[in-house]
Amino acid sequence: MISVDVERQRVLVEGVNQVKRHTKAGTTGRGARTGGIITQEASLHISNVMLVDPETKQRTRVGYRTETVERDGRERTVRVRVAKRSGKDV
């Protein structure tokens, strides 16, 4: 992952959603700029990004499992995120 824009809920992932920009040759304040076709990554909405399974190293969905944990002498119910593909904790 390259960057995350929290306000717009978008992420920039390396090698994913590549677009081609056609740039015109010209001059900038620092010198001449060559024209051509540039390939670069475009941002994705955060809902379209999946987690990587810690065991199989493939993308996976996320599920939840409830556990009862004892803290400070009291029992609490805690939700734990689980990879659907392997069942391991994320």
Rank of each mutant, 00 (worst) to 15 (best):
73 G>K: 12
4 V>Q: 10
4 V>D: 09
75 E>A: 12
70 E>W: 05
50 M>C: 14
77 T>M: 02
1 M>F: 08
69 V>A: 13
33 R>W: 02
68 T>K: 15
78 V>D: 04
66 T>A: 13
37 I>P: 00
62 V>S: 02
47 S>A: 15
64 Y>N: 07
21 R>H: 01
10 R>W: 02
41 E>F: 04
22 H>G: 07
66 T>S: 13
69 V>Y: 05
28 T>Y: 07
78 V>E: 12
21 R>F: 02
74 R>Q: 15
56 T>E: 04
68 T>F: 06
50 M>N: 14
73 G>W: 12
56 T>S: 15
11 V>L: 13
30 R>T: 14
60 T>Y: 01
31 G>V: 14
29 G>D: 12
75 E>Y: 04
39 T>N: 06
74 R>W: 05
12 L>C: 05
58 Q>S: 13
38 I>E: 11
50 M>I: 05
22 H>N: 09
69 V>Q: 14
59 R>E: 08
74 R>V: 10
46 I>K: 01
60 T>Q: 07
23 T>D: 03
42 A>W: 05
15 G>Q: 10
57 K>A: 08
46 I>R: 03
35 G>Q: 01
31 G>L: 09
19 V>K: 09
15 G>S: 11
6 V>F: 13
6 V>K: 11
2 I>H: 10
83 A>D: 00
73 G>V: 13
53 D>A: 01
45 H>N: 14
2 I>N: 08
51 L>W: 04
34 T>L: 12
48 N>F: 03
42 A>Q: 12
76 R>K: 12
24 K>G: 01
89 D>Q: 05
36 G>L: 02
17 N>P: 03
71 R>S: 11
32 A>I: 12
50 M>D: 13
68 T>Q: 14
21 R>C: 02
29 G>I: 06
78 V>F: 08
32 A>C: 03
46 I>F: 05
54 P>W: 02
78 V>L: 10
60 T>M: 06
72 D>C: 08
88 K>D: 00
9 Q>N: 14
47 S>I: 12
20 K>H: 05
70 E>R: 11
37 I>V: 15
80 V>T: 09
1 M>T: 12
7 E>L: 12
12 L>E: 05
5 D>R: 10
29 G>L: 07
85 R>W: 01
49 V>D: 06
81 R>G: 03
